[in-house]
Write a protein that binds this DNA or RNA. Structure first.
Length: 422
RNA sequence: GGGGAGGUCGCAUAGUGGCCUAGUGCGGCGGUUUGCUAAACCGCUGUAGGAGCAAUCCUACCGAGGGUUCGAAUCCCUCCCUCCCCGCCA
């Protein structure tokens, strides 16, 4: 959510930002009109409420029955008028909030302009793609042959785009999760969180998934709860409606959770393998920081995610996303690992700064100094990393001619010392 | 799931229709006193919105939302949450 004061005082700046993202700038005018009317009504009703408070106090002291009755009936009229105005104000406020919650974040000035994902900028490529002296297989062939991924039984249980991991496949994923959590908690200063995997609607509003991006969510029937699409949602909302001390910041959390995304995509797209599925596991990093530090923190967040790629020794590239691909962030970097079997770059991490956009929605505040007024803090998050695609990258990069897979060195202590899967 | 007790200012508590501009204690901040610390005493102490250059003032907030009333922390309704007992259960 944007600051209404910013919209009031610099509407042109907001319109320009919306235009850069390809969003409708006229939203600003609807919000401003409603804001003005709302404030005029508040002014009017507050005068009446002040009057009623004073006269009600007088009534309690009046002994003269006639005078008393006259004031009571006068206040009855005032009370009716107040009720009318309050009704109008709450209707205006509901609409005002609806429009404000719909409004996206504004891109940072340093974000490249663009209209599609093709306008994203490759910042750098790290690592040399392995030269194969045989034709590398896609992970679904390797996984089925090794008996570590079972697609058919996944479909039998839950339908298409669900899968079952077995044996060394399960073990590899569990090793990755544990290793990544250890890396971020022991080397990068994050503290671990295990949140609920279902959340209330207001929590999804807090991160910005609702109302605008609700079409991909799995809702629990009959429970007013939704399965989380990412750990970002519960973890970012951890301190909602709280006022933190400046000395508490920065707070870095890391959480492993399953994630559910009911992606509405064309039936033929990415159906093979585990690249695009309805349920997957992910380790997520979330930062709560003071406003002046958030862009420096974004860079270290990216570096923390890159460390995972480097330690696994898998080639990857860093992308700076353009204005069309920002979601609700002001600035976003993606990490993509090279997968030689499917011959594509796989998005394994997305690192975003939201500035105060989520803080305002979730009411996440801190006190800059003792006694000072509370201010909204800045939130960031980044995958560190998303499991199925890292699994793909490991399987396809570390495969051998006989279809076995070498276990990356850093994972071996987490795999009971195993050096090869197969 | 059944029965009972509750949710009030950072914490603890008082408050059953107007004396509540929510009292008191603790904590916190400032001051007086003081060789230092402590004690004692005095003052201050939330959030949001609005008016004003400012001092300051107004409005709302006693779990949430409705209702009754000239007036609600207090009465009524619905919901949420916490604690205790019983049942069930990983």
């Amino acid at each position: 959510m944007l600051d209404i004061k910013l919209i009031r005082e610099q509407p042109d700046l907001v319109r320009a930002g919306l235009r850069r993202r390809g969003d409708n700038p006229a939203q600003v005018d609807a919000i401003l009109a409603l804001d003005e009317r709302r404030r005029a009504l508040i002014k009017e009703v507050e005068v009446l409420k002040a009057e009623r408070n004073v006269v009600s106090k007088e009534i309690s002291k009046l002994r003269d029955a006639i005078e008393r009755e006259a004031k009571i009936s006068a206040m009855r009229v005032v009370g009716d008028r107040i009720a009318d105005l309050d009704r109008q104000i709450s209707a205006d406020e509901a609409e005002f909030n609806r429009l404000l919650l719909w409004l996206p974040n504004l891109p940072h000035a340093d974000v490249p302009d663009g209209s599609t994902e093709h306008d994203n900028v490759v910042v750098r490529v790290e690592g040399e793609p392995r030269q194969f002296d045989f034709s590398p297989k896609p992970h679904w062939e390797l996984g089925e042959a090794l008996g570590i991924i079972d697609f058919e039984r996944g479909v039998k249980l839950s339908g298409s785009r669900f899968f079952v991991l077995k044996g060394a496949g399960s073990r590899l994923q569990r090793a990755l999760i544990t290793w990544m959590l250890d890396l971020h908690t022991q080397q990068h200063g994050y503290s671990e969180i295990t949140p609920p995997y279902v959340v209330k609607e207001e929590v999804l509003v807090g991160t910005g998934n609702l109302p605008r991006f609700g079409e991909n969510l799995f809702r629990i029937e009959g429970a007013d709860l939704t399965l989380i699409p990412t750990a970002e949602v519960p973890v970012t909302n951890l301190y909602r409606d709280e006022i933190l001390e400046a000395s508490d910041l920065p707070i870095f959390h890391v959480a492993y959770t399953p994630c559910w995304r009911n992606e509405q995509m064309s039936a033929g797209r990415d159906v093979r393998g585990i690249k695009r599925v309805y349920q997957f596991d992910k380790v997520e990093m979330v930062k709560f920081v003071t406003p002046e530090t958030s862009y420096a923190e974004l860079l270290t967040l990216v570096a923390n995610a890159e460390d995972v790629c480097k330690a696994l020794k898998i080639p990857y590239r860093l992308l700076k996303l353009c204005t069309a691909d920002l979601g609700t962030a002001t600035m976003k970097y993606d990490l993509e690992m090279w997968a030689p079997g499917v011959e594509e770059w796989l998005e394994v991490s997305s690192c975003s700064n939201f500035e105060a956009y989520q803080s305002r929605r979730a009411n996440l505040r801190y006190r800059p100094s003792p006694g000072a007024k509370p201010e909204f803090l800045h939130t960031l998050n980044g995958s560190g990393l998303a499991l199925p695609r890292v699994m793909i990258a490991i399987m396809e990069n570390y495969q051998q001619p006989d279809g076995t897979i070498v276990v990356p060195e850093v994972l071996r202590p987490y795999m009971g010392g195993a050096e090869v899967i197969g």
